[in-house]
Design a protein around this nucleic acid. Structure first.
Lengths: 145, 145
DNA sequence: TCATTTCCCACTAAATAGGTAGGAATTGAA
DNA sequence: TTCAATTCCTACCTATTTAGTGGGAAATGA
């Protein structure tokens, strides 16, 4: 029932980009240092986020990464799905891949419904929180001090 | 963001015991066959559930396992915690173990709060669903046919 | 007595997690 | 035009976790 470091680091990096949105590209090195994450490991994650269209990159000197869209349009769920795959507590909920939608006995569907409920409560939080929400939380935190 | 087969099989087995609650001990072999799970693998899981006090066992001929308590008193969350450990999407939420409660920068606490929200929504479902709820779902399913 | 059943321990193959290393390609600035 | 900064790409690596298997000792009802 855990998010791996892929998801966790990815969210940290995207949150960092959200806090610096509008300032032009941010170098991977900067993000990695600020978020205390291995640079070359994070690089791989950023490559996946780029291919998924969540960030834009600029090569060469003064290059770096920036959000492809405004923070309000990026949910945490999107980030997690790119880095961790579909949000499904158990395989039989996963209709996209070939992990099968039906599980044999009718009693088993009772369990399937339960897992679906769990899935819904997770996606509810994940898909309804955006980077903008987190950015505002951070802002409020700063003001309060 | 997945439950491993440990949790999934464990819940299946406990659900099976709930459906057969009051009928005396059920042999591991029977559960394994009904739930289509490897017998010796399930055996290890049952051992952990027994040590955690969730099931009672009886050795020898006519032996087997049965719920230690009425289905209404067993939540799915308990089962999952025994077999998968604490329900924490990320380490910094885990105050029980030595994974640390505090994460460095104040901005990071924004993320911590977010993960906490996710955790809450998960435990909400997991801890408020009991084996009795599932048993009744199964009963209703049967009646409807 | 004996078939049945739990209990216990050791082992293992494959996948996943969490990285490292090195170099090619691009680009802004001096 | 050169060069340092930076992304991009591929390959590789180690430890841990996952999902089991196998064998035998101990208990117990018939």
């Amino acid at each position: 029932m855990r998010v791996s470091t892929r998801g966790e680091y990815g969210v940290r990096a995207m949150f960092d980009l959200a806090l610096n949105f509008g300032k032009g590209p941010i170098a991977l090195k900067t993000i990695a240092e600020r978020q205390m994450v291995s640079e070359s490991y994070l690089e791989q994650l950023m490559a996946e986020l780029r291919k998924a269209g969540l960030v834009h990159s600029k090569r060469g000197a003064q290059g770096g990464y920036e959000l492809a869209d405004r923070p309000v349009n990026v949910s945490i769920g999107e980030i997690i799905r790119v880095l961790e795959g579909p949000i499904t507590p158990v395989d039989c909920l996963d209709t996209d891949t070939e992990r099968g939608p039906y599980c044999g006995t009718p009693e088993r569907c009772v369990l399937r419904n339960f897992w679906r409920e769990l899935q819904d409560s997770m996606t509810q939080v994940l898909d309804n929180t955006t980077l903008e929400d987190l950015r505002q939380d951070a802002y409020r935190l700063e003001v309060a001090e």
